[in-house]
Every structure is written in C-alpha cells, then in structure tokens.
Amino acid sequence: MEALLELGPLLRTWRGRLQPGDVGSPFGSASTRTAGLRREEVAWLAGVSPDYVKRLEQGRAHPTASVVHALARALRLSEAETATALRLAGHADDLRALMPRRITPSVRRLLDRFPDTPVAVFDAAWTRLDQNPLWTALTGDPRGRGDREDNLVWRGFLGEPGRVRHPQPDQYRASIVADLHRVHARYPADPDLVSLVTTLRRRSEDFARLWGASDLGEHGNERKTIDHPELGAIELDCDIVTVQGAGLRLIIFTAEPGTAAADQLRLLSVIGSERVSARGGSTTGSPPTS
C-alpha cells in the first residue's frame, strides 16, 4: 500500500506535464480549462474509467501490469519511468519476464509523420497499442478501447470480424496462432499473455486445435480487403514491420500509385477520420462512457 501511495503523486505529475494537443485529445476546447491532461483524458487514452484514474492517484487501487503499461503509453513515459511505475505497482519481480508494451519515441514519431498512410502499433502478441487517425478512419476501430477486441488473435476466434477481410482466412488464423505460440514461448511468465492464451484455449475449439499443433511461426505480409461503409471495398497491401529491441510491430496499409485503392485512401485522408468514422458508425472521437 505504501508503494501505491508513492505511485499516485507521480501519476498526477506525469499527466500535468502533457497538453491535450500532445496526445490527440477528443475533448476539444474543454480540455484547456486546466494545465496538463485531465483525468478523463488519461482514462480515455488508457481504456479505463476516470474514477479508476482518481483512485489510482489516491493510492486506493492496485493496477495490473497491463493497466500500468496502458497508463505509460497514455502519459508518454520513458523506459525508466515505466519501470518505476511497474515497481511501485508491485510488478517488478522480474521486469524482463514481461512482454514489452512501451511505444518508443521513434515509433511515436512514425505515427505522427505518416498522416496519409494507415499505421497502427501492436505488441508482440498482436494487441493494438496505438494508431494514427487514418487507421481509425479506414478500419473503424476506435482508439483507447483497452479491451480484448484490440487483440488480433482474439478477434480472429472470438471477437467481431471488423472491416478487414483476409484472402485466405484459414491460413491467416493458423499463422497468427503459430506466431502467438512463438511469443508465448518467449514470455511464458507474462500474466496478461498467459491469461489471453488460456482463455482462447478454453473458449475456442479452433484455437485450441491450432495451438495443440505446437507450430511456432511468424505472421507475415498479406494483401487485404477493407470493406469501408462509405468507400466500398479497398484492396490494400498490408506490410508488417518489426521494431527490433522494442518488441513492437507496425502494420501499415498502402496502395499502389495510380490505382483505385490509392484514390480511395486519398479521399479518406481528405475527408478526415473524424467525419468519415462518425458517418460510418464508429465511436471514434467520442470518449468512453465507462
């Protein structure tokens, strides 16, 4: 409990040094009433409730390692600050056993500097950590949700299919399970990863069957079709870039110049992610109500 009381003031200090414009706040001009980020903004970015952030800052809640990582991403913490937060939350028995989930400054710059290209950042287990506005507009997936639907493996077996279509669904599912199997072997003591795999094995017979094959592999590039509610089917190349040393993956959608898909992406960029996503039924740009 004493360590949690130390964590609270640090969280308040860390949110106080950021401005809403630094993180793409959806709260508009109301965010300028106080210096730094409000609890509501931190909650939206981390996928938790404002009341939970309040209790954390008061030392009255014990966050899991995944919540600490989500707060670290929301507050743009350094590696040393993230390690401190994990230690104070009681998750520092062996930090090397935890799968990396921190977005490095260089990867953050990539998100900021490719406004015309849909890009999202995933951890090694295929949980989406962040994305740029064009990714949101293309896929319709809201930012800051913070639940299992952010994990591609979960969505492939138990979740909503979303807008992305895979040309060979069975091959896709087999490859992404083999990839997760490899990551699980690398981080066998990560509690969130263990929970994900255990739940998938219990609830999905197909996942359990593929997992039982004990294949270890790596999911690679594949051409995708995105069924956009306003622009129709968009055929795009999907490239996966691994950030060595950070344990992160970037998924990048691109179109060959001069094609209909390139025109569709350009139109999506011009219209703007907020407008298109709102008309397409996404919750993008609206903070969660929880």
Rank of each mutant, 00 (worst) to 15 (best):
A208C: 03
A208D: 13
R209I: 14
L210V: 05
W211R: 13
A213R: 04
D215L: 15
E218P: 14
E218M: 14
E218H: 14
H219W: 12
G220W: 06
E222Q: 08
E222L: 03
E222Y: 02
E222F: 02
R223K: 11
R223A: 01
K224Y: 00
T225L: 09
T225K: 12
T225M: 08
T225Y: 06
I226P: 05
I226H: 04
D227L: 15
H228V: 06
P229L: 15
E230T: 13
E230C: 12
E230R: 13
L231Y: 07
L231T: 00
L231A: 10
G232P: 00
A233F: 02
I234Q: 07
I234N: 04
I234R: 09
E235G: 05
E235H: 13
L236A: 14
L236N: 08
L236V: 11
D237L: 07
C238Y: 10
C238F: 05
D239G: 09
I240R: 08
I240E: 04
V241F: 06
T242W: 01
T242L: 05
T242I: 09
V243D: 06
Q244N: 12
G245P: 05
G245Q: 11
G245K: 10
G245L: 14
G245D: 05
A246Y: 00
G247F: 02
G247I: 06
G247L: 13
G247H: 10
G247Q: 08
L248D: 06
L248K: 07
R249P: 05
L250W: 01
L250H: 01
L250P: 00
I251S: 09
I251P: 01
I252F: 03
I252V: 12
I252E: 11
F253Q: 09
F253E: 10
F253I: 02
A255Q: 07
A255R: 10
E256P: 12
E256W: 15
P257S: 11
G258N: 04
T259V: 15
A260G: 01
A261N: 07
A261S: 14
A262Q: 04
